[in-house]
């Protein structure tokens, strides 16, 4: 293997009908490059996993796709339309939903109201419809019992559930999950895996950043590994995890037997 990005896919370009196409995304904070020239694509009903060590640029990549951060270079197309410079709120309305790695609840609002913001503005729904959508999202995330609780008083796990519920309430066609499983216990994982699989199976594109690789591998169709702002490998999840390039990223040397995690 060479040091060039490893592609385990038949063709490197985005296939026709891709939901999200990111091309040559670049972002630097001063001297720190968090995305050098990252390209990837997601089809409707497809789940893409992203792994990589801390500081690899995973969360930055999500922030570029959602418009939370502006790109230095590159292009983002969503459903065929160029959204590279579209404001974040507009991208949400177009169908890009996301969760934050460190949950950001509206602490002065109740859990239900938090989710209602998503269905009202993200999905553009009116009162009754918005309330029903919000309730459904709470059901999916398993939070209905806390609907009238102030979001500021939630523990971390429920804050993560709230992130998922709010994102679902925007009715996303592409859902970006940033370490949604972090902090979950082993017996809580299967329910989350089932939920995300069902979202994917309903036709929603999913991008899932996660350190808990065994959970990720149960859901994702393809896997991308990032390190220091570069794509190290993309393709079939198990082949990517088994590749020398990924082993080198995690272990610091190219070990042919390396089952990195």
């Amino acid at each position: 293997m060479t040091s060039a990005p490893l592609s385990l896919e038949a063709s490197s370009g985005a296939p026709a009908g891709a939901l999200l196409e990111a091309e040559g995304l670049a972002k630097a904070f001063g001297q720190v490059v968090t995305a050098r020239s990252v390209s990837f694509h997601v089809a409707p009903g497809e789940a893409l996993g992203i792994v990589g060590p801390n500081g690899a640029g995973k969360s930055t990549l999500l922030n570029l796709v959602t418009g939370t951060l502006p790109v230095d270079a590159g292009a983002i197309r969503f459903d065929g339309a160029d959204v590279t410079h579209t404001p974040a709120a507009r991208r949400t309305a177009l169908g890009i939903g996301r969760t934050f790695q460190v949950p950001r609840p509206f602490e002065g609002l109740t859990v239900f109201e938090n989710v209602l913001v998503g269905s009202t503005f993200g999905a553009g729904m009116r009162r009754r419809e918005a309330s029903e959508k919000a309730w459904q999202a709470l059901e999916t995330a398993g939070l209905t019992h806390l609907a009238n609780t102030a979001a500021g008083s939630l523990r971390l796990l429920d804050r993560k559930r709230l992130e998922l519920a709010r994102a679902l309430a925007t009715q996303p066609r592409l859902l970006l999950l940033d370490e949604i499983a972090g902090g979950l216990t082993e017996h809580e994982l299967p329910a989350l895996i089932e939920t995300i699989s069902a979202i994917r199976d309903s036709g929603t594109g999913v991008v899932w950043i996660e350190h808990i690789v065994h959970a990720l591998l149960q859901v994702v169709d393809r896997l991308m590994c990032l390190a220091q702002g570069d794509v190290v490998a993309t393709g079939d999840p198990r082949e990517v995890m088994a590749s020398d390039a990924v082993a080198a990223v995690y272990l610091g040397s190219a070990d042919p037997e390396g089952e990195a995690l």
């Binding site: 709120a89 934050f100 950001r104 609840p105």
Partner: peptide
């Protein structure tokens, strides 16, 4: 609905934008 959006902005404007609030 404007008020709901404003209250969200008050608590966290980045999260509000990510949920579609202008």
């Amino acid at each position: 609905r404007v008020g709901l959006g404003l209250t969200a902005i008050r608590d966290d404007s980045v999260a509000a934008a990510s949920l579609g609030v202008a």
